[in-house]
Simulated scan of single mutants.
Amino acid sequence: MKVALFDFDGTLYPHETFETLRAHLKSHPKYKKNYKHFVRHFAPAYFGYKMKMVPKIKMQNRALESYILSFKGYSKQEIDGFFADVANEMSEELRTSLLEKIQQLKQENYYIVLISGAFIPLLEALFKGVGFDYIVGSKIHYNGNKLDYKTRFERMFADRKIDIIKEHFKNKEVDWTNSQAYSDSITDLKMLELVGKPVAVAPDSDLLSVAQDKNWKILNDF
């Protein structure tokens, strides 16, 4: 089995996903009232980060946690509907060349995995029909049909992505040498190093330096 691993934020989607989510919540005709709840919960971590008292990763975790907690009391259907609205607009800005690459890899019998820190219902709505075999993202918990705001939120990121990948493929024979991985960020270095054919997509400066040093394929023209 050959595998193709795709990052989302900055790779398939060229912008910062959280900033897009924030803007949609602030302007959404039905859910914009949730924005003040998000800000109230997130503000201490944000200002702590700005004052260099809160680590970046903790601030990012609190950002997503605060975001979903702003939907306290809402049903799964309502939350899924909101993310479907966001996905509808985001879909116009996906990198079409990479979507075409995914379809090519599917025809070549690659097992395609999407790996992201974004919320799973957003990813599922955004890539419905694209053909991902497995989607890894940040899970939203429910108690019955309502948002479960008591269960600890876990954001999918960096090394945790590697743990999930290895767990998913532990009983499968994977041809890692001929497998591929696509990402824009140095934070996904371990994911890129898992495969024999890593691809740096519009890479940040740190990943660009590594990719050039290791002679990896670099995609910049879209």
Rank of each mutant, 00 (worst) to 15 (best):
F71E: 03
L192F: 11
I165H: 02
A158M: 11
G81H: 06
P44C: 09
G73Y: 13
G137I: 04
Y182R: 01
P121W: 03
I165N: 03
K56V: 01
D7Y: 04
Q103R: 14
P44H: 07
I120Q: 14
E167C: 10
D163M: 08
I186Q: 06
L99D: 04
L123D: 05
K214Q: 06
Y31F: 13
G129Q: 03
W176T: 01
P55W: 03
K30M: 08
G144N: 06
K197A: 02
Y74T: 04
K197F: 13
F8L: 11
E167Q: 13
Y35V: 03
L123A: 04
V201D: 03
E154M: 13
L208S: 07
K172G: 00
G144I: 01
L99T: 02
K150Q: 15
A84G: 00
D206E: 13
H37V: 07
E65C: 07
T177K: 15
G137T: 02
K197N: 11
V136N: 04
R155Q: 15
E167K: 14
Y74E: 10
S70K: 08
L147V: 03
D159A: 15
K36P: 08
I112A: 02
M1K: 01
G73F: 08
N143P: 03
G144H: 06
L99F: 01
L64D: 14
V113G: 05
Y142K: 02
F83W: 10
H41I: 12
F38W: 08
T187V: 15
T20G: 06
T20F: 06
F8N: 01
N34W: 09
E93K: 14
Y111M: 07
H141Q: 12
M1H: 06
P14W: 04
M90Y: 06
G196I: 05
G117I: 03
W176L: 14
L12C: 09
F153R: 02
Y142R: 07
F119D: 02
S70D: 09
A125S: 13
S91A: 12
K170D: 07
K33I: 11
T20I: 12
Y74D: 12
A158T: 15
F169M: 04
K170V: 07
Y111H: 13
M59H: 05
M191L: 14
S66F: 04
F38V: 01
V136M: 14
L123Q: 01
Q60E: 14
E19R: 09
I102L: 07
I120T: 14
S66V: 01
F42S: 05
A181L: 00
K26V: 02
K166M: 15
S179D: 09
E92N: 14
A125K: 08
N145Y: 12
G137M: 02
I112F: 03
L25Q: 00
K26D: 11
K128E: 13
W216C: 00
F157V: 14
I140E: 06
E16G: 01
L99C: 02
K172V: 02
I164V: 15
H141A: 09
F71L: 01
T17S: 13
T177L: 13
S209Y: 12
K214Y: 00
Q77I: 13
G73E: 12
T151E: 05
E124Y: 04
K2T: 10
R62Q: 13
Q60L: 11
K76I: 07
S75N: 05
K166P: 07
T187Y: 15
I115G: 00
S138F: 00
P203Q: 08
E193Y: 00
V201S: 07
V210Y: 04
